[in-house]
Each structure stands twice: as C-alpha cells, then as structure tokens.
Design a protein around this nucleic acid. Structure first.
Lengths: 197, 197
DNA sequence: CGGCGTACATAACACCGTTGCGCTAGCCTG
DNA sequence: CAGGCTAGCGCAACGGTGTTATGTACGCCG
C-alpha cells in the first residue's frame, strides 16, 4: 500500500446515489461516466475500480431499482382480505412504475443494450414479488383460490400487472375505456377469479 | 435537378432490409450507421436523406417489427372454438417473440433510449392485436365471455401474454413449474375464465 | 531522509451519430 | 455544341461516448 484509498465503500455509495439521482431525473440516456464522476468529485477511474465499468454500474442500479420497488411493495398495508390485498399490491406496483419510469426501464427494458443482471441479482429481483406469493398463499388457505402452486398463480398475476404497466408506459393502452386503474382492477379480478376453486 | 437520385425508394428498402438483417442477427447494439451504409453500398448520408437519422431508422424498424408480428399472428389457423383460438394466438405471440427477441426489443423495450413511435406508428402497432379483439368478440357472441367491451378483455389478455413474454425474456420466470408453455396456457385460461359470464 | 510502489487523475484511443465541406455529374442556357 | 449552375452525394471533420494507457503524487519502509 502506498497511499490511503479514496476509492472506498463511501465513494461507492456516493457514486451510486448520484447515479440514482441522475437516472431518476434524466433517465438512462443522461447517465454519462464523466459527468457522474465530476458530480461525485472524482474521476472516471473510480467507476472502473468500484464497479468495473458502466455495465457494472448499471447492474448496481438494477439492484437498487428492485430494492426501491420492493420497499414500495412492502409499504402496502394489508386489509386481511387476500383479494383486496392483491389489488393493493398491483396498484402499488403500477404507481411505483409510473412514478419512477426510468427505474422501471432499468429493471425490465433492455437499457443501452446490455444489462445482464447475473444470477444473484436475478434472485434478488425475484424476491421482490414474494409479498404477492404470500398473499396468494393466504388466498388459497382462505379457500378463495384453488390449491395450486402459489408461485404459478402469483406469476400469472405479476405478468398481468407487468404487462399492463409496460403497455401503459408505451402509450399502447386503448384509452376508450376510461380510467386505466379500472382496467387494472378488472383484469386482475378476472385473473384471480379464473384461479378460483 | 442536377443528377439522377441514388437515394431513392429502392435504396430505402435495401437499407431497411439490411437493417432488419443486422437487427435480427446482432441486435440493436450491432446497428451502426457506417456499417449499415457500407453493407448497402452507400454512405451514411443516405440514412439521413431517407430516414432523417438513426431515430427515424429505428422508427421504421419499429413499424417493420410490428408488421412481422402481425403477419405471424395472421398466420394462425383458427379452429372455430374461440378459447382455443385465443390460446393459439397467445402461443404464436410467444413463439414470435422468442424467435426474434431483438424485434420484440425494438417494439417494447426502450431501445437505445429513444424510440418515440409517433401517433400513426402507434396506431399501426395497436392494429396488430386486432385479431385478438375479434376472437374475444366471437367468444362473447358464443356466450363464453360476458358482454363487456371486447377491447377491454383483449387488452387484459394481451397484457398477460406480453408480461409473461417480457419476464421470460428477462429470465425472470420461476422455473420450478416445468414447461413455460403450460404456464401461459394456465394463466390465459384463468384470465378468460375470469371474464366468463 | 530517500527511493519505492501503488492509487489516482489525466490524457490518449477507438468508436459512435451527426453535420458541413467540396467534388461530381447531369440539365439548361447561350 | 460547349460551358457553367446547381443539386446530390461521398468524405472528412466535430463533439461526444466508454474504455485504456500514461504519468504523477503520495505515504510507507528501509
């Protein structure tokens, strides 16, 4: 060792925070390494020693985006009625995606081309929808849904919400049907009804 | 006029065809203007006079991708049983997306950041799922689904398929459930059952 | 106290999309 | 029939990107 490390964990979180801010404000396109380093008071070398490059930084943002998403879903207050809770989760999912679309893009859009999350990042991402699996489990216990694998049903529900959000963000929802929130509610009610015993 | 135009409609389709080929093989990342022009035996200026730039080229590819998708869906042979036809459409949708994921990325992923399709491109994109609306309409006529707005039900079905495909392409489908195709069938059967009268 | 080795910032590199320059090639006029 | 005018186009320059190589300043150890 020759001199004290400046590229330490503290700088890593500072860079990540700054990247999160830029991502939130300007989107993935606005994320430039030089500007990021300058804003954090360091040089681009730091990004390479701490993240290995821009793909590594994006993977860290992928994790962060799912963590934020997970926090939003964890804040949902349950009523105890599984189907209502499921709808609450879905609407929280939608609200979070519409409120921070750039993060949604990092999670599900192919950003800049190559965000290859790696297995453990994918596993953490999958953990995000654990609350939904649990709600489905309670619905099954309550006799509201048939006794299938909860993950299967939860995946179907998740896919439906995710697909609706994706279409809505692409402005591809046919808008003759009034409030989009109603469409979510009706579609998800239908899915859960379809899995009724 | 001074000399015969080389940047004509023929060159436009040649460039588009070459772009389609490159997109299909190398993905959006592999689409470089210089290489594209060289492959087509012209210069980058042609892309600007014919498409206005790279965003214009990507919008043309957006249209082309949806056209291909529409052709795949139009090739589905109907049995006459609306629910079976709906499943056939869904599996054709999935097959097309998995077979040409780069086109799917152009259609639904935020490619390179800015593919802003413009209203008439969006309208053509929405036309793509017209067959699904018609199948739903037949299901309603046959008394298999409740007499709601067919577009609403079709949108719910579309979102479900689209969401599943999106998750599958992201390798985010929980794989303990065996064949993913079964998951599609079960989820979509549930959705259509949820809209039963 | 001096040399060493490392950790860093800075500058160079290759490439991108975009744009201005300038040559080239055909019609129109004299 | 010749020559200039100008539109059309290839080419090279520009600003910017992510990445990599270079040089430098610093703190420890002999």
């Amino acid at each position: 060792m020759a001199r004290p490390k400046l590229h330490d964990e503290a700088l890593r979180v500072r860079l990540l925070e700054q990247a999160v801010r830029t991502l939130s404000e300007d989107g993935p396109q606005g994320l430039r390494l030089r500007k990021l380093a300058a804003d954090a008071g360091t040089s681009t070398t730091a990004v390479y020693s701490l993240f290995g490059g821009k793909p590594g930084l994006l993977e860290a943002l992928f994790d962060e985006a799912f963590a934020r998403f997970g926090r939003r879903l964890a804040e949902v207050e349950y009523t105890g009625e599984p189907r209502a809770d499921m709808l609450a989760l879905a609407h929280a999912y939608r609200a979070s995606a519409l409120h921070e679309p750039h993060f949604y893009q990092v999670m599900f859009g192919q950003v800049g081309g190559v965000v290859d999350p790696g297995p453990e990042s994918r596993a953490r991402a999958l953990d995000t929808f654990r609350p939904l699996v649990e709600v489905v489990g309670r619905a099954i216990e309550a006799g509201l849904m048939r006794a299938e694998n909860p993950e299967t049903i939860a995946t179907a529900l998740w896919a439906c919400v995710h697909g609706l959000v994706s279409l809505e963000l692409r402005a591809l929802l046919p808008m003759d049907g009034g409030d989009p929130a109603d469409l979510y509610t009706r579609a998800l009610t239908a899915v859960s009804a379809g899995f009724a015993p």
